[in-house]
């Protein structure tokens, strides 16, 4: 090691010294360092065929080592995954930290680690490492964008936690935000949130998952439409035409969009359609979605009313009725 340190010192003073680079490669234990040193030698003296041959051998060895490391990392990561499934999060985290320390190119280990670490900053680093290894990983990109969005907009995160029933975490964010409130109005808004959450917690209100709320709220407008269709068709559902069913589908989709717009959740619509990093719908996105929902519902009802009004002429024959 003393020889290595000596050569490194020489190279600090004489970076263009090929002999120093060559001897650094000879004394170093690290294959990667040996390869870098010999590459420098060849850059300075390209005609040295023995060096070139040695570099080739080293590269082959490096690839073998990388394969071994990757196989080991895969094995350890799948072990960590099993530990996590068993609820042993701390052991899984320790194992993954060991993996990324010894082989930092394992994408899945970083991804799993990003889900296990407690600190937001650590999650960001883990996800950035995933993206450095694979910039096409959309899920990691979306999660990183969401984390960065929530860092800038903590109240959005509090609202999301509240909707997910994580009241303690939401309250912690509200309390922190209250300490940094910049105006009386902002403080009032935060205080209302704190009050609401504490009341809800005290009343022992059970958490209802956002998806359940969406499923529950979706069929309301369709039910009204269906009853009107029944009225239109003499209470005989067999008389419904395919176009009426299609309009009914439009009402159902409209009802679904309205439900999504009225429930704060991590629905894919927010990220896929609106490209929102927070993934829970900004005020504008919610407005746009609910307007789309109302439009779909409105179109179906207008068409049904139109079909109904077409029959208004029937009344000309009414004079004979009692």
């Amino acid at each position: 090691m003393q020889a290595r340190a000596l050569f490194l010192r020489i190279l600090e003073e004489q970076p263009e010294n090929p002999a120093a680079w060559y001897w650094l490669a000879r004394v170093s234990d690290d294959v990667d360092e040996q390869i870098v040193a010999l590459e420098r030698v060849l850059a300075l003296k390209p005609h040295l065929s023995q060096v070139r041959a040695r570099l080739k051998r080293l590269r082959t060895r490096q690839q073998a080592i990388q394969r071994e490391k990757a196989a080991w990392a895969r094995k350890q990561t799948s072990k960590a995954e099993k530990l996590r499934k068993r609820g042993e999060g701390e052991e899984a985290t320790a194992l993954l930290l060991d993996v990324v320390e010894k082989y930092e190119k394992h994408e899945k280990a970083w991804l799993l680690l990003s889900e296990l670490v407690d600190e937001e900053e650590d999650r960001v680093i883990a996800l950035q490492n995933v993206l450095a290894l694979n910039p096409k990983n959309k899920a990691a990109r979306a999660r990183l964008d969401a984390l960065l969005h929530f860092r800038e907009n903590p109240l959005d995160l509090a609202a999301l936690y509240e909707e997910e029933g994580r009241f303690d975490e939401a309250l912690a964010i509200y309390h922190q935000a209250a300490r940094h409130a910049e105006s009386r109005q902002e403080w009032d808004t935060i205080y209302k949130g704190i009050n609401r959450l504490e009341r809800r917690r005290e009343s022992g209100v059970r958490h209802v998952r956002p998806n359940v709320s969406i499923i529950r709220l979706t069929p309301g407008p369709f039910l009204l439409y269906f009853l009107l269709l029944m009225v239109h068709n003499g209470l005989d559902p067999l008389q419904f035409t395919p176009s009426l069913w299609l309009e009914g589908l439009s009402v159902l989709v409209g009802g679904f969009l309205l439900a999504v717009a009225s429930v704060r959740s991590h629905h894919p619509i927010w990220t896929r359609v609106f490209g929102e990093p927070g993934g829970s719908g900004s005020r504008l996105a919610r407005f746009a979605l609910s307007m789309t929902g109302w439009t779909l519902i409105g179109i179906a009802f207008v068409l049904l009313f139109g079909a109904s009004l077409e029959r208004l002429g029937d009344y000309s024959s009414l004079s004979g009725l009692p």
């Binding site: 009107l228 009225v231 239109h232 068709n233 003499g234 209470l235 008389q239 049904l304 009313f305 079909a307 109904s308 009004l309 077409e310 029959r311 208004l312 029937d314 009344y315």
Partner: peptide
């Protein structure tokens, strides 16, 4: 309504 006579929905 049953005879589908007139603008019953409206």
């Amino acid at each position: 309504i049953l005879e589908r006579f007139g603008p019953t929905v409206v």
